[in-house]
């Protein structure tokens, strides 16, 4: 399922593992935790080879998509579980455990909820408890498997913000898995894009968006249009007209040009690379999103700020202001 994957996670960073379903991101997370074993390869925590270590010995904190809280224990007992499970020699005193649980409850803003049971909590509250439980054992790395996947949109947004705050406060090395690109881009210090078991690119959110390493990364991180183009003399031409896109070194001949919606602009037919007719348009969050059916029957989405309404059926030209070509 995973193919020759090598990933470096920096201390204290919040790394997002992003990819479609089946890309292997959960598998990778579970291998790091020790819940699944790789056929080949090693896991290193700093200079320590953790490959042979059992789950219990790896000191990782894991947060599951469906919380996996212990149904028959109170919130406080859930959070204290890891500390209570230690051997007598390594276990902190009861008072110390109680104090730590209290601190964590404050951190997750559920002070006073210690005596409640998971069934009495909302989804968002349960996930916060799950996080506190994982943090209680002071793990080397915190692993989150689609932590907000089971929650509804508004709760998801709130918890995203909250996770970022917690991370900034604790400085905990954290890896989280998601298939939601917005989440990955908003939260991560760096994003690792996976597809079908391969690591496509690792970089900051800006890097993966502005300089995608491959068509797969481009396709996954947002809307795009594929345009047939020609690489000639170092530039990329569409329908004979030059675009501002430079052709990668050594590439000549027919290529696919990948363009983002904001890189398309409505233009006069003389300056246009593509032409078509307006299919529909709607305003959203201060800008216009216009759907244009081009001469090849493709529906292209264009974002425009000029405020001029473009009625359906209106013929328009589109200018390409940027894009990517992959070798």
């Amino acid at each position: 399922m995973l193919h020759d994957l090598s990933l470096d996670v920096r201390a204290g960073e919040l790394l997002g593992l992003l990819g479609p379903s089946g890309s292997g991101k959960t598998t990778l997370l579970r291998i790091i935790a020790g819940l699944d074993a790789p056929d080949r390869g090693r896991i290193l925590f700093g200079n320590d080879d953790a490959t042979g270590l059992a789950v219990q010995e790896r000191a990782v904190g894991f947060v599951f998509q469906h919380y996996a809280l212990f149904k028959h224990m109170s919130v406080a007992d859930n959070i204290a579980y890891g500390l209570n499970a230690r051997r007598r020699a390594d276990r902190p005193a009861k008072a110390e455990i109680k104090r730590r649980v209290g601190d964590l409850l404050d951190l997750i803003r559920l002070s006073g909820f210690g005596d409640r049971y998971p069934s009495q909590l909302s989804g968002g509250q349960r996930q916060r408890v799950a996080l506190a439980r994982a943090l209680a054992v002071e793990p080397r790395v915190l692993l989150l498997d689609e932590p907000f996947g089971a929650l509804d949109a508004q709760v998801r947004k709130d918890l995203r913000r909250w996770l970022r705050e917690i991370h900034d406060r604790t400085g905990q090395t954290t890896i989280f898995v998601t298939h939601d690109q917005d989440e990955a881009l908003e939260l991560s210090d760096r994003v690792a894009v996976l597809d079908r078991g391969r690591l496509e690119q690792v970089g900051t959110p800006d890097e993966v968006q502005e300089h995608p390493a491959s068509a797969i990364v481009m396709k996954f991180l947002g809307d795009h249009v594929e345009v047939e183009a020609l690489a000639e003399g170092g530039r990329v031409l569409v329908r004979g007209r030059e675009t501002p896109v430079a052709a990668p070194a050594g590439i000549i001949g027919p290529v696919k040009l990948y363009v983002r919606p904001w890189q398309l602009q409505l233009a006069e037919p003389e300056a246009a690379h593509l032409s078509g007719t307006v299919r529909s348009s709607y305003r959203t969050q201060g800008r216009q999103r216009i759907e244009v059916v081009d001469t090849e029957g493709r529906v292209l989405a264009v974002e425009d700020f000029d405020g001029v309404r473009h009625p359906a059926g209106h013929p328009v030209g589109l200018r390409i202001n940027g894009g990517h070509v992959f070798g």
Partner: peptide, 15 residues
């Protein structure tokens, strides 16, 4: 899932 959570928190299989 609950058992896996317990293991990641450091509990032995028996615990």
């Amino acid at each position: 899932a609950e058992e896996e959570a317990a293991l990641t928190l450091g509990a032995s299989g028996l615990h």
